[in-house]
Write a protein that binds this DNA or RNA. Structure first.
Lengths: 234, 234
DNA sequence: ATAAAAACGGGTGATTTCACCTGTTTTACT
DNA sequence: AGTAAAACAGGTGAAATCACCCGTTTTTAT
């Protein structure tokens, strides 16, 4: 049996090493290199003496994420076979993936066997989607609505001050409170907020929060756990 | 060398299996069982013929999360040694962890060696925090501000309708738009929103979005990727 | 040094959110 | 059948957001 050469990227070291450990136990699989983000993955790919048969990328990574990395890799090596792993899996997102040229799309709570099977299929046939995914794809295509062309905008288009304001918005501060905190006028905060809405394409505060979260501009846990914790003594 | 009996829970099958694969390679470690959420972890723990020396829990899990699970476990077995793993690690959260009785708190992008070392330390000394964490803890305690008693509120205190409203809020709809969508009065939506704010303890829309995200009431990726994707053809 | 970008901020007004009040109807439970 | 909870919805008013207008000062880069 032919060996399959792999390369993978994920920003969670434990996950990456765990995956590596699982895949190393398969004799037909050979891991060439791993990376903790898209940038270093790309760099390693460029200088690698052997080209991986299949690449496994995490969808969400700090810095360059799975989508952007896929685009960059496909630009340099259109024949590259890329599998995307995602924590919060949704079928509705398959269309984008296909257009992007992703060769497989798997949720992170797949069983190891599924992953290995998918790797083999991608290597052999150049593509792997399970039956449910196929159905979903078929439905999406036959319904006539063409999937939009995925394209990442630079996530650092925001100025330092705007990011600061955005963070405070996510901390549930109102404009007057932010103005007070930063010793500036409410008008200025309002101006920044307007610019944020315009730049991010968000419709309102809810959109801004989602944007901030996606671009990992705020401290998840710290903020979120305020909801899980009721302070009995205050 | 004595073997250390382990049990672990994580809702991402690949991560869980990866971790298992890593730890299985250590001869001194013996994995008794694994679970995909807090509930089944607890049930397995109750009926297990051997009691694990160290338990490893994911902080964020669907259903019962790491914190709630810790509380339940500690209630039944106060001597249980629990390690919490977290994706988005923050030092500021250490205080809560200590109060909760967590015996170690590690980011998910730790190296496998670190994790193994931590497991051993927890088993031997009943506790493991690295130097940075110790400093942080010391600082927090010496600064006089006592960490609040962490206590999970039931996350399903919201009614069906409230959840529905909350989801639409997260989709950036305004109250009038939601009212229109659901064929109800704006007043009613407003009422639900008020109840949401009261029940969740959120201050405003930003807070509601964070709450929804923490309790995994909305489809992450699907919604977030609207920001990453610019539809060139529309 | 000069131009560009960012930060600053004032005015106005429509819309939305939020915080109170009040009540009725529907649904669920036992 | 009776109670409780949920969903429904009206009024009022203050506060905040959002969308436009306008300009000045400060910072940054070439």
């Amino acid at each position: 049996m032919e060996t399959i050469k792999l390369a993978m990227a994920d920003d969670e070291a434990l996950f990456l090493n765990g995956l590596k450990s699982i895949l190393e136990q398969e004799e037909q699989l050979n891991i060439l290199f791993t990376a903790s983000d898209g940038q270093s993955f790309l760099e390693q790919l460029k200088v690698a003496e052997q080209f991986p048969d299949v690449m496994i990328l995490d969808l969400r990574m700090k810095g360059m994420d799975g989508i952007e990395t896929t685009q960059q890799v496909k630009e340099l090596f259109p024949e590259a076979k890329i599998m995307i792993l995602s924590s919060h899996y949704r079928d509705t997102f398959l269309g984008y993936m296909l257009k992007l040229g992703v060769n497989a799309f798997l949720p992170k709570n797949s069983a190891p066997d599924q992953l290995i099977k998918a790797i083999e299929k991608v290597h052999e046939k150049g593509l792997y989607f399970d039956e449910g995914q196929m159905m979903s794809i078929h439905h999406e295509l036959s319904s006539g609505k063409k999937p939009k062309v995925p394209q990442m905008e630079q996530s650092t288009e925001l100025t330092r001050r705007e990011v600061e304001i955005l963070q405070l918005i996510c901390e549930q501060y109102t404009n007057p409170e932010i103005a007070d905190k930063l010793f500036i006028s409410v008008r200025t905060v309002d101006g920044h907020r307007t610019n944020l809405l315009q730049k991010t394409g968000a419709k309102n505060t809810a959109g801004l929060v989602l944007y901030a979260l996606y671009h990992q501009m705020i401290d998840w846990e710290e903020r979120l756990l305020k909801f899980g914790i009721s302070s009995k003594e205050d």
